[in-house]
Amino acid sequence: MEQERVDNLEIEILSDNWYTLKKVNFDFRKNDGNWERQSREAYDRGNGAAILLYNLEKETVILTKQFRMPTFLNGNTSGMMIEVCAGLLEKDNAEDCIRRETQEETGYEISNVEKVFEAYMSPGSVTEIVHFFIAEYHEDMKIGEGGGVDEEQEDIEVLELKFSEALIMMKDGKIKDGKTIMLLQHLQLQLILADS
């Protein structure tokens, strides 16, 4: 059994304008058993869910394209990112969240979703756990245009791409979103869709 590593926790809220940024001072027990006072910042935006929709007959996937300010600030000159459908859980469980987000962002109403794993995406600075899903889609599931929710200032383009094309875009840097890369590779590794 692993011994406790954190003691004397002090948390200060630095910002709660959009999500919550906390400064955390604490004593940390190092591997050699000695205690050291440390200070970190953690960004809490809640937990999220992401999904990759795929069609076996057409060998296609549904992705989204939207503006992401943090990527713009870090050298992505257009700020546009190609991603899987995703969203914050808010008060929903992960499955209900991803069904809602799928309909809002892509226009597809899905019922059967398969959870494949969950992961911390940036554990050095962000508290969020993302729940990852896949689901098969068909044209008769499309009940709207998607594009996101106006009140959330979303302006989302829906992309239907050949799976092989999405893999090429991942390799040549057109797809740089971690969630998307993980789910595309999951489909590839599980041999759900072919890559050629």
Rank of each mutant, 00 (worst) to 15 (best):
L9E: 10
D155N: 09
V61M: 01
G87Q: 05
N76R: 14
K174W: 11
R100Y: 13
N17D: 14
I156C: 08
N74Y: 08
E165M: 10
G144R: 08
I51G: 05
I13N: 04
D7G: 07
T71M: 15
R5T: 09
F117Y: 05
N25G: 13
L14G: 14
F67I: 12
T77H: 15
T102H: 02
V6P: 05
L21K: 14
H138R: 07
E151Y: 12
F132G: 06
T60C: 08
G107K: 02
F117G: 00
H138A: 00
F163L: 08
F133V: 01
G173R: 11
E105N: 04
T77L: 15
L193E: 03
I98R: 12
Y120S: 12
E59S: 01
D44F: 13
V126M: 06
F26V: 05
G178Y: 10
L53V: 07
T71R: 14
D195N: 07
Y54W: 06
G173E: 13
R37L: 02
I110N: 00
S122W: 14
Y43E: 08
H186Y: 10
N47Q: 06
L161K: 02
L14T: 12
I82D: 11
V84D: 04
E145A: 14
C97W: 03
I11N: 07
L184H: 03
M141T: 02
R29K: 11
E114N: 05
M141A: 00
H131P: 06
A135E: 08
L63P: 06
E4S: 14
T64I: 07
F72R: 11
R5L: 12
K23Q: 11
A119S: 10
K171D: 00
V61W: 09
S39F: 09
I143D: 13
F28Q: 14
E139P: 08
Q185M: 09
I11H: 05
I181M: 00
M80F: 15
Q103T: 11
F133T: 02
E104K: 08
F72V: 10
L56F: 00
I143H: 02
I181D: 01
S122V: 13
E160A: 04
K171N: 11
R40K: 06
G124W: 00
I192A: 07
I168D: 06
F72G: 06
P123M: 03
L63H: 07
Q66G: 07
E101C: 04
R99N: 06
M81W: 09
Y137W: 09
E139I: 04
K65G: 02
I192M: 05
Q190P: 04
I51N: 02
E151Q: 10
C85F: 01
L56P: 01
E101G: 00
V6F: 12
S164T: 05
Y137K: 04
F163T: 05
V158F: 08
D155E: 12
Q185I: 07
K171T: 03
Q3C: 14
T71K: 12
A42N: 09
K115E: 05
K142V: 10
M182G: 08
V84Y: 02
P123H: 01
C85M: 06
I129W: 05
E157M: 06
L88M: 15
F28I: 12
D32K: 11
E152T: 14
T64Y: 06
A166W: 04
L89E: 04
E152K: 15
E59P: 05
F117N: 04
E41R: 08
K179H: 04
I134P: 01
